[in-house]
Design a protein around this nucleic acid. Structure first.
Length: 262
DNA sequence: ATCGGTACCTGCACGC
DNA sequence: TGCGTGCAGGTACCGA
Protein backbone atom coordinates (compact mmCIF):
# COMPACT_ATOMS: atom_id res chain seq x y z
CA UNK A 1 0.00 0.00 0.00
CA UNK A 2 2.42 2.61 1.00
CA UNK A 3 4.30 4.99 -1.21
CA UNK A 4 5.60 8.39 -0.26
CA UNK A 5 2.23 10.14 0.25
CA UNK A 6 0.84 7.28 2.34
CA UNK A 7 3.95 7.07 4.51
CA UNK A 8 3.92 10.85 4.88
CA UNK A 9 0.29 10.66 6.04
CA UNK A 10 1.14 7.93 8.53
CA UNK A 11 4.07 9.99 9.83
CA UNK A 12 1.80 13.00 10.32
CA UNK A 13 -0.87 10.96 12.03
CA UNK A 14 1.76 9.61 14.42
CA UNK A 15 2.56 13.12 15.69
CA UNK A 16 0.72 12.50 18.99
CA UNK A 17 3.40 9.90 19.77
CA UNK A 18 6.12 12.49 20.22
CA UNK A 19 6.85 12.92 23.89
CA UNK A 20 5.38 9.58 24.89
CA UNK A 21 7.54 6.80 26.26
CA UNK A 22 7.74 3.19 25.12
CA UNK A 23 7.25 1.13 28.25
CA UNK A 24 7.48 -2.26 26.62
CA UNK A 25 7.93 -3.74 23.15
CA UNK A 26 6.85 -7.16 21.96
CA UNK A 27 7.92 -8.56 18.60
CA UNK A 28 6.15 -11.72 17.54
CA UNK A 29 7.10 -12.28 13.90
CA UNK A 30 10.72 -12.91 12.93
CA UNK A 31 10.04 -12.34 9.26
CA UNK A 32 9.38 -8.64 9.66
CA UNK A 33 12.42 -8.04 11.86
CA UNK A 34 16.01 -7.25 11.12
CA UNK A 35 17.63 -8.40 14.30
CA UNK A 36 16.91 -10.40 17.39
CA UNK A 37 13.46 -9.70 18.84
CA UNK A 38 14.54 -9.66 22.47
CA UNK A 39 17.52 -7.44 21.85
CA UNK A 40 15.36 -5.06 19.79
CA UNK A 41 12.80 -4.88 22.58
CA UNK A 42 15.55 -4.06 25.07
CA UNK A 43 16.88 -1.32 22.82
CA UNK A 44 13.58 0.55 22.59
CA UNK A 45 12.05 -0.12 26.00
CA UNK A 46 12.08 2.84 28.39
CA UNK A 47 12.81 5.37 25.67
CA UNK A 48 10.86 8.45 24.80
CA UNK A 49 9.80 9.20 21.21
CA UNK A 50 11.66 12.40 20.39
CA UNK A 51 10.77 12.74 16.70
CA UNK A 52 8.99 10.99 13.85
CA UNK A 53 9.94 11.51 10.26
CA UNK A 54 9.66 9.92 6.86
CA UNK A 55 12.70 8.87 4.86
CA UNK A 56 11.49 7.79 1.44
CA UNK A 57 9.03 5.01 2.22
CA UNK A 58 10.57 4.43 5.65
CA UNK A 59 9.14 5.79 8.85
CA UNK A 60 11.85 6.72 11.29
CA UNK A 61 11.06 6.95 14.98
CA UNK A 62 13.79 8.69 16.96
CA UNK A 63 14.00 7.37 20.49
CA UNK A 64 16.53 9.38 22.48
CA UNK A 65 19.47 8.41 20.32
CA UNK A 66 18.10 5.10 19.05
CA UNK A 67 16.49 4.85 15.63
CA UNK A 68 13.63 2.58 14.79
CA UNK A 69 13.12 2.35 11.02
CA UNK A 70 9.82 0.87 9.85
CA UNK A 71 9.07 -0.07 6.26
CA UNK A 72 5.41 -0.88 5.62
CA UNK A 73 6.03 -3.15 2.63
CA UNK A 74 2.73 -3.69 0.84
CA UNK A 75 0.29 -4.15 3.70
CA UNK A 76 2.03 -2.79 6.78
CA UNK A 77 0.14 -0.50 9.15
CA UNK A 78 1.11 1.40 12.25
CA UNK A 79 -1.97 1.92 14.39
CA UNK A 80 -2.45 3.99 17.51
CA UNK A 81 -4.63 2.58 20.26
CA UNK A 82 -6.10 -0.16 18.05
CA UNK A 83 -6.91 -3.69 19.07
CA UNK A 84 -4.68 -6.59 18.07
CA UNK A 85 -5.58 -8.44 14.92
CA UNK A 86 -4.60 -11.67 13.25
CA UNK A 87 -1.59 -10.01 11.65
CA UNK A 88 -0.32 -7.89 14.50
CA UNK A 89 3.41 -8.54 14.66
CA UNK A 90 4.61 -5.91 17.11
CA UNK A 91 3.05 -4.17 20.09
CA UNK A 92 4.59 -1.12 21.71
CA UNK A 93 3.04 -0.36 25.05
CA UNK A 94 3.33 3.34 25.77
CA UNK A 95 3.07 5.31 28.98
CA UNK A 96 -0.29 6.30 27.54
CA UNK A 97 -1.90 4.04 24.92
CA UNK A 98 -0.23 1.63 22.52
CA UNK A 99 1.19 1.42 19.01
CA UNK A 100 0.66 -1.70 16.89
CA UNK A 101 2.42 -2.95 13.81
CA UNK A 102 0.13 -4.93 11.56
CA UNK A 103 1.14 -6.55 8.25
CA UNK A 104 -0.79 -9.36 6.58
CA UNK A 105 1.72 -10.05 3.83
CA UNK A 106 4.76 -9.61 6.05
CA UNK A 107 6.72 -7.72 3.39
CA UNK A 108 7.43 -4.85 5.75
CA UNK A 109 10.23 -4.70 8.26
CA UNK A 110 11.34 -3.10 11.49
CA UNK A 111 14.95 -2.37 12.33
CA UNK A 112 16.48 -0.78 15.40
CA UNK A 113 19.93 0.74 15.80
CA UNK A 114 22.09 3.55 17.13
CA UNK A 115 22.35 4.95 13.61
CA UNK A 116 20.08 4.79 10.59
CA UNK A 117 20.88 1.58 8.68
CA UNK A 118 23.03 2.20 5.63
CA UNK A 119 20.49 0.75 3.22
CA UNK A 120 18.00 3.33 4.49
CA UNK A 121 20.45 6.21 4.62
CA UNK A 122 21.91 5.54 1.18
CA UNK A 123 18.79 6.04 -0.89
CA UNK A 124 18.44 8.68 -3.57
CA UNK A 125 17.03 12.17 -2.99
CA UNK A 126 13.44 12.43 -1.77
CA UNK A 127 11.03 12.33 -4.71
CA UNK A 128 8.88 15.13 -3.25
CA UNK A 129 11.83 17.49 -2.77
CA UNK A 130 14.29 16.72 -5.55
CA UNK A 131 15.44 19.72 -7.58
CA UNK A 132 15.45 19.56 -11.35
CA UNK A 133 19.23 19.57 -11.82
CA UNK A 134 19.69 16.55 -9.57
CA UNK A 135 16.78 14.75 -11.23
CA UNK A 136 18.07 15.45 -14.72
CA UNK A 137 21.61 14.36 -13.85
CA UNK A 138 20.13 11.11 -12.49
CA UNK A 139 18.27 10.50 -15.74
CA UNK A 140 21.47 10.87 -17.74
CA UNK A 141 23.66 8.52 -15.75
CA UNK A 142 21.26 5.57 -15.72
CA UNK A 143 20.62 3.39 -18.71
CA UNK A 144 17.30 2.01 -17.55
CA UNK A 145 13.78 2.46 -18.83
CA UNK A 146 12.13 5.38 -17.11
CA UNK A 147 9.46 3.44 -15.20
CA UNK A 148 11.79 0.95 -13.47
CA UNK A 149 14.16 3.83 -12.82
CA UNK A 150 11.43 5.81 -11.06
CA UNK A 151 10.80 2.76 -8.88
CA UNK A 152 14.50 2.43 -8.06
CA UNK A 153 14.86 3.88 -4.56
CA UNK A 154 18.55 4.59 -5.12
CA UNK A 155 17.56 6.97 -7.91
CA UNK A 156 14.70 8.68 -6.05
CA UNK A 157 13.28 7.63 -2.72
CA UNK A 158 9.54 7.43 -2.23
CA UNK A 159 8.00 6.71 -5.61
CA UNK A 160 6.10 3.46 -6.09
CA UNK A 161 3.89 1.90 -8.71
CA UNK A 162 0.85 4.18 -8.40
CA UNK A 163 2.63 7.50 -8.50
CA UNK A 164 5.14 6.41 -11.14
CA UNK A 165 2.24 5.56 -13.49
CA UNK A 166 0.36 8.76 -12.62
CA UNK A 167 3.41 10.99 -13.09
CA UNK A 168 4.38 9.38 -16.40
CA UNK A 169 0.84 9.88 -17.65
CA UNK A 170 0.74 13.54 -16.64
CA UNK A 171 4.07 14.13 -18.34
CA UNK A 172 3.04 12.23 -21.48
CA UNK A 173 6.04 9.91 -21.21
CA UNK A 174 5.84 6.25 -22.25
CA UNK A 175 6.94 3.98 -19.37
CA UNK A 176 9.45 2.11 -21.55
CA UNK A 177 11.26 5.24 -22.69
CA UNK A 178 14.97 5.03 -21.97
CA UNK A 179 15.66 7.52 -19.19
CA UNK A 180 18.81 8.81 -20.85
CA UNK A 181 16.81 9.62 -23.98
CA UNK A 182 14.58 12.13 -22.21
CA UNK A 183 15.51 15.62 -23.31
CA UNK A 184 15.26 18.78 -21.24
CA UNK A 185 11.66 19.50 -22.10
CA UNK A 186 10.24 16.08 -21.31
CA UNK A 187 12.48 15.74 -18.25
CA UNK A 188 11.14 19.04 -16.94
CA UNK A 189 7.57 17.94 -17.58
CA UNK A 190 8.21 14.69 -15.74
CA UNK A 191 9.91 16.41 -12.82
CA UNK A 192 6.97 18.80 -12.44
CA UNK A 193 4.50 15.93 -12.75
CA UNK A 194 6.21 13.91 -10.01
CA UNK A 195 6.17 16.81 -7.55
CA UNK A 196 2.59 17.75 -8.43
CA UNK A 197 1.18 14.25 -8.12
CA UNK A 198 2.98 13.59 -4.84
CA UNK A 199 1.93 16.86 -3.23
CA UNK A 200 -1.67 16.51 -4.37
CA UNK A 201 -1.71 12.99 -2.97
CA UNK A 202 -0.25 14.13 0.36
CA UNK A 203 -2.99 16.79 0.53
CA UNK A 204 -5.57 14.04 -0.04
CA UNK A 205 -4.05 11.82 2.65
CA UNK A 206 -2.69 9.26 0.17
CA UNK A 207 -4.46 6.60 -1.89
CA UNK A 208 -6.55 3.86 -0.29
CA UNK A 209 -6.83 1.09 -2.87
CA UNK A 210 -7.88 -1.73 -0.60
CA UNK A 211 -6.58 -1.49 2.91
CA UNK A 212 -4.40 1.55 3.47
CA UNK A 213 -5.18 3.65 6.54
CA UNK A 214 -3.14 6.07 8.63
CA UNK A 215 -2.35 5.58 12.33
CA UNK A 216 -5.81 6.83 13.30
CA UNK A 217 -7.48 4.42 10.88
CA UNK A 218 -8.39 7.11 8.33
CA UNK A 219 -8.39 6.26 4.62
CA UNK A 220 -6.81 8.45 1.94
CA UNK A 221 -8.82 10.01 -0.87
CA UNK A 222 -6.35 10.32 -3.71
CA UNK A 223 -7.55 7.14 -5.45
CA UNK A 224 -10.45 9.30 -6.69
CA UNK A 225 -7.93 11.39 -8.60
CA UNK A 226 -6.07 8.51 -10.24
CA UNK A 227 -6.10 9.01 -14.00
CA UNK A 228 -4.52 5.74 -15.20
CA UNK A 229 -3.62 3.55 -12.23
CA UNK A 230 -6.00 0.56 -12.27
CA UNK A 231 -8.11 2.21 -14.97
CA UNK A 232 -7.53 -0.48 -17.59
CA UNK A 233 -10.07 -0.18 -20.42
CA UNK A 234 -11.50 3.10 -19.16
CA UNK A 235 -11.23 6.16 -21.42
CA UNK A 236 -8.17 8.35 -21.01
CA UNK A 237 -9.32 11.58 -19.31
CA UNK A 238 -7.45 13.59 -21.95
CA UNK A 239 -8.13 11.85 -25.28
CA UNK A 240 -10.64 9.08 -24.59
CA UNK A 241 -8.40 6.24 -25.78
CA UNK A 242 -8.83 3.16 -23.56
CA UNK A 243 -6.13 2.94 -20.88
CA UNK A 244 -3.90 -0.04 -21.36
CA UNK A 245 -2.22 -2.31 -18.83
CA UNK A 246 1.07 -3.99 -19.55
CA UNK A 247 4.03 -5.37 -17.62
CA UNK A 248 7.20 -3.33 -17.37
CA UNK A 249 9.97 -4.94 -15.33
CA UNK A 250 7.36 -7.31 -13.90
CA UNK A 251 5.19 -4.50 -12.54
CA UNK A 252 1.65 -3.83 -13.69
CA UNK A 253 1.85 -0.59 -15.66
CA UNK A 254 -1.05 1.60 -16.75
CA UNK A 255 -0.75 4.15 -19.53
CA UNK A 256 -2.54 5.87 -22.39
CA UNK A 257 -1.15 4.54 -25.68
CA UNK A 258 -2.02 7.80 -27.43
CA UNK A 259 -0.88 10.42 -24.89
CA UNK A 260 2.25 8.47 -23.94
CA UNK A 261 4.06 7.59 -27.14
CA UNK A 262 7.44 5.98 -27.34
C1' DA B 1 24.53 -1.43 -14.39
C1' DT B 2 20.28 -3.46 -15.59
C1' DC B 3 16.92 -7.02 -16.73
C1' DG B 4 13.96 -10.83 -16.19
C1' DG B 5 12.56 -14.14 -13.39
C1' DT B 6 11.68 -15.72 -8.91
C1' DA B 7 10.72 -15.48 -4.11
C1' DC B 8 8.75 -13.86 0.01
C1' DC B 9 3.18 -13.90 2.12
C1' DT B 10 -1.86 -13.31 2.53
C1' DG B 11 -6.25 -11.97 0.76
C1' DC B 12 -9.41 -10.96 -2.72
C1' DA B 13 -11.94 -11.22 -7.07
C1' DC B 14 -12.83 -13.99 -10.76
C1' DG B 15 -14.37 -18.02 -13.63
C1' DC B 16 -15.77 -22.67 -13.69
C1' DT C 1 -19.67 -24.24 -2.14
C1' DG C 2 -15.05 -24.99 -3.49
C1' DC C 3 -11.01 -24.83 -6.22
C1' DG C 4 -7.65 -22.90 -9.27
C1' DT C 5 -5.78 -18.62 -11.26
C1' DG C 6 -4.13 -14.13 -11.30
C1' DC C 7 -3.52 -9.97 -9.12
C1' DA C 8 -1.95 -6.57 -5.40
C1' DG C 9 0.93 -0.15 -2.80
C1' DG C 10 7.07 -3.65 -1.44
C1' DT C 11 12.16 -5.26 -1.86
C1' DA C 12 15.93 -8.70 -2.50
C1' DC C 13 18.39 -12.05 -4.91
C1' DC C 14 20.01 -14.86 -8.80
C1' DG C 15 22.19 -15.46 -13.25
C1' DA C 16 22.73 -13.40 -17.64
Amino acid sequence: MPELPEVESVARSLAPLVGRRIVNAEFTCLRVLRGDPERMAEQVAGRQVTAIRRHGKFLVLELEGVYMAVHLGMTGRLLLDASRGRHTHAVFTLDRGALLYDDSRQFGCIEVGAVLPARVERLGPDASQVDFETFYRGLRVHRAMIKPLLLNQKFLRGLGNIYADEALFRAGVHPRTLASRLGLVRAERLHRAILAVLWEAIEAGGSSISDYVDAEGRKGLFQISHRVYQKTGEPCPVCGTPIRRTLVAQRGTHFCPRCQRR
